[in-house]
């Protein structure tokens, strides 16, 4: 900080710090803080509060009838006192109903149902699968692009990779939907070949299988896996590959000992990005499964917010996912022995 002041002078230094602080505040602290705060409390509406109020009003109505039919002044006053008392209680309960007291605690996290927890674990597992598959698919691609000889080939490959990304993500997912649907492209071709019978619903239900979601996700997020890898692979001195070959190494050993170690930071970044995107993806599973193939956790979060209208629970779900993703980042960095500095590169 002292060096900042020295380099830019006091006024500008303070300004720069203020901008940086604002940046961090606006992008990280505020949204995250709001989400975490939301997840840590719940409205303590004892479920039967409405019932109690209804009962009170019923009682009051009865009492009023009683009071109206009563001639004895003393007993009438007694009824009215009771009504007033119940009215006061009802008002209090009504106030609680419209603005229930907040209770802070971890219950939003611990109250997750067994089914939701299962979906949570399954989503993490699926996201790991997508990441692993994407890695397997993308590594050869990245290698081909990065080491393509001649500028022309590299351009062609890059364009082939980027052009699909000029199309909106939703459109791309819908395209896969059309390909894999019951009466989609693949089933159509199979029917044409006489291998399935569409008229008798003898199609292959691709969409009911989680792998349909995997496929669309890999397709959707390839670029995030490929680009970091291409970036690191491009910095590899090709002479190292040739030296390894010259020393008698097989292609497999060259990849394992020379190329992959060099590409590690890129692989780590690619895996982190793909994992985060797929673990948090809403549109892809929502569109691809259409409720047929089991929910992903992101869909549960969505429902907590917009269907159950329980923002506290929704926030808790979202925070849980965030924690897992953060853990994943740390594990990847540990596993690949890369620091933040390498990733930033």
């Amino acid at each position: 900080m002292a060096s900042l002041f020295r380099a830019y002078g006091r006024g500008l230094g303070v300004l720069l710090l203020a901008i940086a602080a604002l940046w961090i505040l606006a992008l990280i602290v505020v949204p995250l803080g709001a989400m975490i705060e939301q997840s840590l409390w719940w409205k303590d509406s004892k479920g039967d509060i409405t019932l109690q109020i209804d009962r009170l009003y019923n009682d009051m109505a009865t009492l009023q009838l009683d009071a109206a039919g009563e001639t004895d002044a003393a007993r009438k006053a007694g009824f009215e006192a009771q009504i007033a008392q119940k009215q006061a209680l009802a008002t209090e309960l009504e106030a609680q109903e419209t603005n229930p007291p907040k209770t802070y605690g971890l219950a939003n996290f611990t109250r997750m149902s067994a089914l939701h927890f299962y979906i949570f674990v399954r989503t993490i597992f699926y996201a790991l699968m997508v990441t692993a598959l994407a890695l397997v698919v993308c590594y050869p691609m990245a290698y081909a692009v990065a080491l393509a000889s001649g500028p022309r080939k590299a351009i062609v490959l890059t364009v082939a990779l980027i052009v699909p990304y000029a199309i909106n993500e939703l459109l791309r997912v819908y395209a896969w939907l059309m390909i894999l649907d019951y009466r989609g492209v693949i089933n159509g071709i199979l029917a044409w070949l006489g291998m399935v019978d569409l008229d008798n619903r003898g199609w292959i239900p691709f969409l009911e299988n989680p792998s349909a979601v995997f496929l669309a996700m890999i397709y959707t997020y390839v670029l995030f896996m490929v680009f970091p890898m291409v970036n690191t692979l491009e910095t590899l001195d090709r002479n190292q590959i040739e030296a390894a070959r010259d020393l008698g190494a097989s292609s497999f050993r060259i990849h394992r000992r020379v190329i992959i170690p060099h590409a590690k930071p890129g692989i780590a970044v690619g895996c982190i990005m793909t994992f985060m995107l797929s673990a948090g993806s809403y549109s892809v599973p929502a569109i691809m499964t259409r409720g047929q193939g089991g929910d992903w956790f992101s869909q549960l979060v969505y429902r907590q917010f917009y269907e159950s209208n329980n923002w506290n629970m929704g926030s808790a779900y979202a925070v849980s996912l965030l924690v897992v993703c953060t853990a994943f980042i740390l594990i990847m960095m540990r596993l690949f022995g890369v620091g933040l500095r390498d990733i930033a590169k």
């Binding site: 002479n239 190292q240 030296a243 020393l247 000992r257």
Partner: peptide, 23 residues
């Protein structure tokens, strides 16, 4: 090689042993 092309992520001994490892 003109630029030597040593493997920067391996130790010196691993570099030297690489050809034998490959065998």
């Amino acid at each position: 090689f003109q630029n030597l092309a040593l493997f920067p992520l391996m130790s010196v001994a691993e570099n030297v042993a690489f050809g034998l490892e490959a065998r």
